[in-house]
């Protein structure tokens, strides 16, 4: 039963990764013959302003996204868990999870209409409460936040379900004992709940960080990297290099670098949480 998994990983993951590493040593526009350039692409990358800008934008996206996803999914899981009515709990769980069933492309398209500068619902509400119209996707300072909002909206339900399953494993007797000792809700959460769902928290944090570094779909649909390159995250930059500028060798160089970066971030996180496996 393990063999199909290994074949799958080999064909769809390891071979493409190795091929990307191989391609990164070439100057290749797909149409012409590959020219071997050794580490030249890596040297060029270190002088590429756009690459560093894309890393910076990715980091900004990542920080906002990870914090929001982690905190909101945990809060929602605790909220759903606290509902005593079984049907109410089920309804809340489904309602929060529902966005996760929608395709990213569809969600991004719907949100474009919500963010629309003139006739979008959000601006109508903001105007009604006196805040005034915002440019949202047309603003270099707001577009990235808009993309984050869509990403969070899509994934928060999924992470909530994982947190919820972890919360259900915490024995009720611990809380009863804590209540007898006079612990309030916040103390119960930080002294009992949070330490006991640590493994799940690490899992969520790692997968969310990895996911945030790979954001692409909603940026392609909502902003196309703009305005003024303000949402050109690294994966989108790789796409532009490969499929708009036909620089497949250089695009692979950045893809390999990004993979290494994600690996280091993950290892650092595991070390931080002192988890070996």
């Amino acid at each position: 039963m393990v063999l199909p998994e290994i074949i799958g990983l080999l064909v769809f993951l390891f071979i493409p990764i190795l091929y990307a590493v191989y391609i990164s040593a070439f100057d290749w526009d797909v149409l012409s013959e590959k020219t071997f350039v050794g580490f030249q692409n890596y040297q060029n990358m270190l002088k590429d302003e756009m690459f560093f800008r894309s890393i910076w934008i990715t980091l900004r996206y990542s920080i906002i996204y990870v914090v929001l996803v982690f905190v909101l999914s945990l809060i929602m899981a605790v909220f759903v868990q606290s509902l005593r009515n079984k049907y109410l709990q089920q309804t809340a769980r489904i309602a929060i999870y529902l966005p996760n069933t929608i395709s990213t492309i569809v969600a991004a398209t719907v949100w474009i209409f919500l963010f629309e500068a003139r006739n979008g619902y959000l601006n109508r509400w903001l105007t009604a409460v006196g805040i005034g119209r915002q440019d949202f996707l047309g603003s270099t300072s707001q577009a990235l936040i808009c993309v984050v909002v869509v990403g969070v909206w899509l994934v928060v339900g999924y992470d909530m379900i994982i947190f919820l399953s972890a919360l259900k494993d915490v024995p009720e007797s611990y809380y009863e004992a804590a209540r007898l000792d006079g612990a309030n809700c916040i103390q119960q959460f930080f002294k009992i709940t949070f330490p006991l769902i640590k493994d799940t928290s690490v899992f969520i944090a790692i997968t969310t960080i990895i996911g945030s570094f790979q954001v692409f779909d909603q940026i392609r649909v909502m902003t196309n990297g703009g305005p003024g390159g303000s949402t050109t995250v690294t994966v989108f930059y790789i796409y532009q290099l490969a499929f708009e500028k036909y620089q497949f060798g250089y695009a692979s160089t950045i893809a390999v670098t990004l993979s290494i970066l994600i690996m280091f971030v993950t290892l650092f996180q595991l070390k931080l949480y002192k988890i070996d496996d």
């Binding site: 998994e5 799958g8 990983l9 064909v11 769809f12 993951l13 997968t207």
Partner: peptide
């Protein structure tokens, strides 16, 4: 983690 990778590959 391996299962997750496999699912992604599929």
């Amino acid at each position: 983690f391996l299962c997750l990778l496999l699912a992604l590959s599929m």
